[in-house]
Design a protein around this nucleic acid. Structure first.
Lengths: 154, 154
DNA sequence: CAAAATTAAATTGTGTACAATTCAATTTTC
DNA sequence: GAAAATTGAATTGTACACAATTTAATTTTG
């Protein structure tokens, strides 16, 4: 087994990106068993969180909130519709827009989902402060990246 | 547009998981234009980082390092093979195992990839210290989750 | 040593992600 | 006010993720 000397800065364990990628997938994996009884995948759960906050958003508005485009959201929302949790219908004011509304089942699912965050917090083994500071650091990072996507002049 | 009062702990912006998920996708998106000239996707780049560190790993070993299973790696590695960057062949000692080896092209791609981390670091707008501490915090989180996947007794 | 158990990849099926294109509906501009 | 530009979803195509199953090879056991 030949070992090739790879420079420090190319080592996997040095990469912030991999730490992020691995942590994100690990956390998602931890949600899976909690969400399965609700019949939701993790991205579907995020979409429901948004709708529970504000019902009747359009696909575009939902996409802005979750930072996902219609290519991802359209099939996801169709699955939520097939599961009887939301309805999708064109806006009368502007027929290009599709409005997503919770059904009664979709709204009442919030009760069951309500136990999820505390359950996760416990598994994460972080204090409230630790969770908040990590979360805020990540949000700052995300915001930073979206402000300077390539640093090019127009 | 009806607003439903959703409890604090169910608000999207409160979720550490969403901050992680969004940050991870943002960072991946920032890599895309840097990796495109190399002909690599982001997960392919991670696999190449591992192989540049240690050539001749099996699919299983690569999977342990990246925390990905054969369902993800097999097609990814076939694409790297199709791109002429790696070879895949059964081990003689144990024919169940498939050994992944860099081709000359795969090895020499490291020179071009060498510029990527510095370029990313600049875009992330974080000091070396900030990057390291965030990375280590995420690694600790990931390790924590993998140690206690469900807190059940055997 | 042969049957049973285990292991490593591959395969299958579902569900994201995201670029690129298409299509229809609305705005803008001339 | 009609042609051109823009916008919002949907669609298409590629590439992950990951659960579950299958297949083949190796170990373990009786």
């Amino acid at each position: 087994m030949k070992r090739l000397p790879s420079p420090q800065h190319l080592l996997l364990d040095q990469q912030l990106c991999f730490a992020l990628y691995a942590a994100s997938r690990s956390v998602t994996g931890l949600y899976r068993p909690l969400l399965e009884p609700l019949g939701l995948t993790y991205p579907q759960y995020l979409a429901m969180l948004v709708l529970w906050e504000q019902d009747g958003l359009t696909v575009r508005e939902l996409g802005q909130r979750l930072q996902l485009d219609s290519g991802t959201l359209t099939p996801l929302l169709k699955r939520l519709q097939a599961a009887g949790l939301v309805t999708r219908q064109r806006r009368l004011e502007d027929e290009r827009e599709v409005e997503i509304r919770l059904t009664d089942a979709g709204l009442s699912l919030r009760e069951q989902a309500s136990a999820v965050p505390a359950c996760m917090a416990q598994r994460l083994q972080l204090s409230i402060d630790q969770m908040q500071s990590l979360r805020d650091e990540l949000k700052r990072l995300t915001r930073q990246l979206q402000l300077s996507p390539s640093e090019d002049s127009p």
